[in-house]
Each structure stands twice: as C-alpha cells, then as structure tokens.
Amino acid sequence: MIELVSDSRCTGCGICVKVCPTNVFDGAVGEVPVIARQGDCQTCFMCEAYCPADALYVSPLADETEHVDEDALAEAGLLGSWRSRLGWHKGQTRLAAIDTTPFLHRVEPVRLDG
C-alpha cells in the first residue's frame, strides 16, 4: 500500500491524484497530496511510475500497513526505483526497448502463457 508522500520531494504537480486508479489521494495542484483512502490502494505502483519527483513509496504489502522511514528508503535507492526500472527518468532507456520477454523461452522448461 502507498505509505509515503515526501513533503521535501513533492512539487505539488497533482499527477498522482489524477493517475491513481483507485482514487487514494486528495489534494489540489500546488499542494502536497494527502493519502486519504489508504485502504483503497490496490498496490499497483502506478503512482510511483508516474511521479516525476520520486516522492512516493508504495510498500509491496497488500493487506497491512508498514512504517517507513524516508531517509532509509532513499538510502536504499527505493524512491523512484520503479520509474527508473521502466526507464521513465530523463535520458534512460525504456524497459520496453530492452524487454527480454520474447527470449524467455530460451531458458524456460516449457512455454507458459500469462
């Protein structure tokens, strides 16, 4: 579930409020959004992918909340890590351009769909 909106990093662009599929955030453009409905978070990581300021952290725990420490997350390189994996930071190569899924069959025991 979403656990962190970093006050220091957030630029108040409002993108997370707009892109969240389950409407978890409240807040006008220019404000740091509030996690208003954490229980509705579906842990899909999309807000993190779209956040241009690396200001969000979604814990991978679907059903329980978790205390997080912003400095420790930053230290561990986790803030912005999903956006970075997708290659969505400026100057990065997009994941789609280096997608190895078409080559998975070379290492798989059998080809499975899904």
Binding site: P60, D99, T100, F103
Partner: peptide, 26 residues
C-alpha cells in the same frame, strides 16, 4: 532456483520486471 546462472537471472529481471518489485523491496 531454476534460474541458476547470472545470465538467466538478468534475462528474467528485464522480462516481467514487476514480478521482482515486491521481493526487492522486502
């Protein structure tokens, strides 16, 4: 554990990348 070489692991990581996200974070 069937991905038993660095090469295979790297291949998996850039395929279904989201698969690894929960484990990396834990």
């Amino acid at each position: 554990d069937r991905a038993d070489t660095a090469e295979k692991r790297a291949l998996l990581r850039t395929s279904h990348a989201v698969f690894f996200l929960p484990y990396d974070r834990r």
